[in-house]
Design a binder for these strands. Sequence first.
DNA 1: CTTACGCATCTTGTATGCAAGATTTGTCGC
DNA 2: GCGACAAATCTTGCATACAAGATGCGTAAG
Lengths: 250, 250
Amino acid sequence: MQDLSPPKNVQTSIDEAVVSGILSARIRPGTRLSENEVASLFNVSRTRVREAMMRLEQRGIVKVSPRRGWFVVEPSAEEAINVYAARRVIEAGLMRSMSRLTEAGRDKLHAHLAEEKTAIAAGDRQRLTCLMGDFHIRIAELSGNAILVEILRDLTARTILISLIYQSEFHAMQSHLGHCRIVAAMEEGDFLKAAELAIEHLDEVETGLDLTRRPDPLADLRHSLSLPPQTAVPSSNASRKPNHETNRGE
Amino acid sequence: MQDLSPPKNVQTSIDEAVVSGILSARIRPGTRLSENEVASLFNVSRTRVREAMMRLEQRGIVKVSPRRGWFVVEPSAEEAINVYAARRVIEAGLMRSMSRLTEAGRDKLHAHLAEEKTAIAAGDRQRLTCLMGDFHIRIAELSGNAILVEILRDLTARTILISLIYQSEFHAMQSHLGHCRIVAAMEEGDFLKAAELAIEHLDEVETGLDLTRRPDPLADLRHSLSLPPQTAVPSSNASRKPNHETNRGE
DNA sequence: CTTACGCATCTTGTATGCAAGATTTGTCGC
DNA sequence: GCGACAAATCTTGCATACAAGATGCGTAAG
């Protein structure tokens, strides 16, 4: 799909490598990104790594803990809610602003849905994570608006990090069907319905989160030792109903 | 309103100073921001200035021309169209997602409208520019969603830069009335109507742009010499009808 | 065995130095 | 006077050096 080779010689190769690693779920939330290590991996000095980190921090993808290190963000429950709310606002707004689906656009969406299907059949979870996020970027691309694509790309990255923290299992087929319904509505030219379906779809996913779960600081070690994830901390209230009515006064 | 003093001792004081300067129209599009000059203004080394520039570049507020310097962006016509389209999508989506207006929220909006009114009476154009942009940030703040506020804040900054390039005169009263209508609809609890009004309002402003106009490289010098702005380059097709139907297939 | 302290190590924060390229300016030739 | 060339100047790009703080480990005291 994309090329993921680190030694690409552009100005933003570091940024892209990190984002691409997150979008494909190869990098977990909370991962430390040492300036020195990244610098040697890319054969550059810390200067350029820091500049990349500054950009990534601005995008809400990494955070610095002073004199401790850079870490891939672990969105809090509140941030997770905000990310989903923002996505509902933007994606629904986007669909309502559309007036028709071109043939080229339809073909791209169909191609994407086909990829999702084969990945589900293959059961490749990493690839699925990547594709499930990409779908929403594909939608944004239909608008031809680079600004919206960028915004949704970064929100998608954060969404993936959120799901890695708060989502116990992912219902790939459910999401896939949601995507299919959205595309179908768009093909009918019913973009209001598509918008509603998009909101429902995001609700479904958000409902599947367990936001009472705390980010697990041992996740990477746990994974390295092939231990089952997070079984020691069961939480009541495992799935909530998202309440996305925005009415706060301040 | 905000404090605009440069020597504020936080980590992002440079970023804030630049953005605040743009939001209040004190910094024109195309302004060069020399690393050395900014560094001495803030009594820091170029390192921190560069880091700030990296963040601002990521936000679409400055651009670097290799080995020539950093410049406040001058959005192209296409970018201008995209900015307005993105704002329509997000602001309309935001309003449609709201279910009610709290008293505190209503009070803040009314306070803001009152400020607009007094600024119009005073005829303070810089302050007006600032307020007209702030209104949309106030709306985003109602949602309590920090992510959306950030996104709209940066889009507003770009909008101001766009208007400084492409807008010959600004119809402050027209904008103010648009804002009043939006607030009225929200007070009625009719957020669908508010969304439609927001789209109309943005359309109005976009229609008032003359996107055939090229950014004037001599603008600051011209201004310093108190010459009349841009009279030498008249352009036909002075105001267009915005076409914001998004239907591109790729 | 447990706890507290201190040093060694590793991290980022910041400044600075140098190189490469772009621009400008001054000068020379016509 | 006018245009072309060249040096001087200014810009960012990038690496490196050093300082300040956080962490962890070993050791010693209780």
